[in-house]
């Protein structure tokens, strides 16, 4: 059977996708009613597009978001320097305006990209030296009550026992805040007296396994579970931090 206008596979695809214009749709449907071979061709082009979407939604859900975000953070920090020509004008203009108006405080937002909590912790941890925690005496009773207080604020059942890591001496627990969310910091020193922090904060991220990372020149290992993000960070060798992270991930 001959059709007045040949119906191509591309026409059939527009029909299957529901985007054929009215005239074309009528033409195709009239032809389908007459020609069983056209129906067979249509069947050959028919797929379950919702199944394709579901399969690839699973791919997006499995993306290594933590790792990508860590790289993005590092880039966002470096990038403004490369664009110094354009940025400089903006910064200079902001400073001049700020000075003219009598305040300068807000202008730093123009040049500071959004930080992830990993980088915020790295910035904070970078200020710690071996001397910072040296004077903190280990008082188990105080440690226990501080850990309980921090755990309650964080909303995560963490006890002093679960925080014990061979090779790291637990020093103290304190509650910080990042973007309005509680951020727990558990401070340790390694065998050389170098400070190491184990931090946790609610992030809402999917579960992810322990991954190594480097933030602001500090070694780190981070992971996510049950909507909380965790990180172990310090100037300690990466392998030591990875082992500590693996143990803490098991214990908490």
């Amino acid at each position: 059977m001959r059709h007045p206008v040949p119906i191509t596979d591309e026409h059939l695809v527009t029909w299957l996708d529901g985007v054929a214009d009215t005239a074309r749709r009528d033409e195709i449907e009239a032809a389908l009613a007459q020609d069983p071979r056209l129906g067979a061709r249509l069947a050959d082009l028919n797929i379950d597009t919702s199944a394709v979407r579901a399969a690839f939604d699973a791919v997006a859900a499995a993306a290594p978001v933590e790792r990508l975000r860590a790289r993005l953070d590092e880039q966002a920090v470096r990038t403004p320097r490369r664009r110094i020509g354009v940025r400089w004008l903006a910064i200079a203009a902001a400073l001049v305006m700020g000075a003219a108006l009598g305040y300068v405080a807000g202008s730093s937002d123009l040049v500071r990209p959004a930080r992830s909590w990993h980088v915020a912790i790295a910035d904070y941890q970078a200020l710690y030296t071996a001397a910072t925690l040296a004077a903190v005496a280990a008082d188990p009773a105080k440690q226990r009550s501080d850990v309980d207080t921090v755990a309650a604020r964080l909303g995560l059942p963490v006890g002093l026992e679960a925080l014990q890591v061979p090779g790291l001496e637990f020093k103290r627990a304190q509650i910080l805040s990042f973007k309005g969310r509680p951020l727990a910091q558990f401070a340790y020193v390694d065998q050389r007296g170098e400070p190491v922090a184990f931090c946790a904060t609610p992030t809402g991220d999917r579960d992810s396994a322990v991954s190594p990372g480097r933030f602001r020149g500090l070694e780190a290992a981070f992971w996510s579970r049950n909507g909380y993000g965790f990180i172990v960070i310090g100037r300690t060798p990466a392998e030591t931090l990875r082992q500590a992270a693996a143990l803490l991930a098991k214990q908490i």
């Binding site: 059939l12 695809v13 082009l45 028919n46 394709v52």
Partner: peptide, 20 residues
């Protein structure tokens, strides 16, 4: 898209009857 559909459809029909 037509070529892709043709290949996916043949395989689905043959493999797991994924064709709605």
């Amino acid at each position: 898209l037509a070529s892709a559909r043709g290949k996916l459809s043949v395989r689905h029909n043959g493999a797991v009857a994924g064709c709605a």
